[in-house]
């Protein structure tokens, strides 16, 4: 399993764009929103938590289809399925690799981009924490979507259609934490709910992902 993780990380670095692409997309998105709504900092400060959360979510989505598609193309997926690794473990490691290459950089970069959107002072910590808690769930949910559509030739759009509604609860609670944090309000309830959703997703969804992956390999 560790071998699989290091291989995936190595490939992400060598293939280029593994780490950088999602971040660049995130930056462009934030800039585009600023161009769209105007430079007024009071307005930007109000919508910053939401924009950063939606941006992180879309940047996450961008690299999902690579999770299994490349391994499927070169036959590695068949070989992994016959290897002495449980399928649930494989999808979890894949999700972890996706989170390290996409989610983690976004979490680290988000406060910087918050600066550009004049996010109010107390918001940074909560933005960082909410993304840190929420993005693993995004990766795991995305892995499920990727496993569902791995056999399809043009699965990318379909995968977005399937995955995005699944992101709704995480987005709502995550953005709520960031928004309340920025407004100096109590964040306890949404933070706990966000953590709960992430934990439950991490614990249960790999079984569904493994099941659909097995179906798709038939």
């Amino acid at each position: 399993m560790i071998a699989l993780l290091t291989r995936d990380l190595k490939l992400a670095v060598r293939a280029g764009g593994g780490f950088g692409l999602g971040l660049a997309f995130f930056l462009i998105l934030v800039a585009l929103v600023a161009f769209g709504v105007g430079p007024e900092s009071a307005l930007l400060a109000r919508i910053a938590p939401g924009i950063l959360w939606v941006g992180a979510l879309l940047a996450c989505l961008l690299s999902l289809d690579r999770i299994f598609a490349l391994d499927r193309e070169d036959g590695s997926l068949d070989l992994l399925a016959t290897a002495p690794l449980p399928m649930e473990g494989i999808v979890t490691v894949k999700a972890l690799a996706h989170w390290i290459t996409t989610g983690l950089p976004l979490v680290v970069a988000a406060p910087l981009l918050g600066l550009m959107l004049s996010l109010p002072g107390p918001g940074y910590l909560w933005l960082f924490l909410s993304l840190l808690l929420g993005t693993p769930a995004l990766s795991v949910l995305g892995t499920f979507g990727a496993a569902l559509t791995v056999g399809l030739k043009r699965g990318g759009l379909l995968m977005s259609l399937i995955v995005l509604p699944l992101y709704v609860p995480t987005l709502i609670f995550g953005a709520e934490v960031a928004r309340r944090g920025a407004g100096g309000l109590s964040v306890e309830v949404p933070l706990l709910l966000l953590a709960g959703i992430t934990c439950a997703t991490l614990a249960l969804l790999p079984f569904a992902s493994a099941a659909v992956l097995r179906v798709n390999l038939r």
């Binding site: 291989r7 190595k10 490939l11 060598r14 193309e73 070169d74 036959g75 590695s76 068949d78 070989l79």
Partner: peptide
């Protein structure tokens, strides 16, 4: 061992 070799071009 199937039709595809399961090799990664970047390794």
């Amino acid at each position: 061992g199937g039709h595809a070799d399961g090799l990664k071009a970047q390794m």
